[in-house]
Amino acid sequence: MIKLFGKSAELQLEKDVSTRYLPVVISAMIFLAALSIGGLFSLSNAINTWSETLTGNLTAEIAYDPAIDLDQEVTTAVKLLSETPGVTAARAIEKDETLKLLEPFLGKNAALSELPVPRLIEIIIAEDSAIDLAALNEKLVAAVPGARLDINRPWLDKMVTLGRSIQVLAAAIMLLIGGVTVIIVIFAVRTGLIMHSEVIQVLHLIGARDNYIAEQFQNYFSRLSFLGALPGLIVAIFVMFIFNFLVGSLEASMLPPLSLGIEGSIALLLLPFLVALLTKYTVRQVVLKSLGRMM
């Protein structure tokens, strides 16, 4: 690793006490950044799943009532729903089919056909439709007593909106972390420049180019950043595993487990390299600017 970044032979920045804190701070920053990325990608995966559910179907349910002709009710409801703008199709689910859906819970039994199961209607909603589900529900209830629209859609809608807002927040946190990291690095480099001003001057007078000096600084600091990033990242991954373990052990939890997906995992693994690059670029700018003021 040391070889990869080269070493700061003449400046001996390694011996600075003042920059020893940098890896610790970078570590904390990367920890936070990794958690943000974890949240960001898990949420985006969850949102995709929710959105798929949304664009998929919706069910209406007509309660069992031995006193009325259910088939008649179903026909009325299907007709009403099919004619609603935004609905692509409405289809009655046959009793057999309904029973099949319940089979895993109730088991196969001849007596099942006598059960008071509600009748279901599958509704397929056009993509990007803006149906007012509450209004449709009222209309349905008025036309068919005992009918009820399964309105988990508004709830999901709100979840998606919430998810998106949290994503924006996570992205903002990432930006903030990036900004703070840059500021910390700038201060560390400035301190280094002051502490080594005499050596820098000697190197200059011997004929070193700005680039030569800047490289020693940028290599040293990007190495510090990279090495600091690793423990932060490892701890963050560990924390996410623990979180998933806890979520998994809670039955029927409200919280979805974190699932990064491939993109998320790649983003996480790129994090140390990104912070090393960011450090390198920042250090270079600061050093060159400061050297530019010398003769």
């Binding site: 003449e10 001996q12 011996k15 000697v202 011997i206 004929g207 070193a208």
Partner: peptide, 24 residues
Amino acid sequence: RDDLPAMRRKIGVVYQDFRLLDHL
């Protein structure tokens, strides 16, 4: 500014206060 390093390499200087790098 970019011309200075090449010029300085043609000049050898012994400073009154030596200006050696202490850690080398």
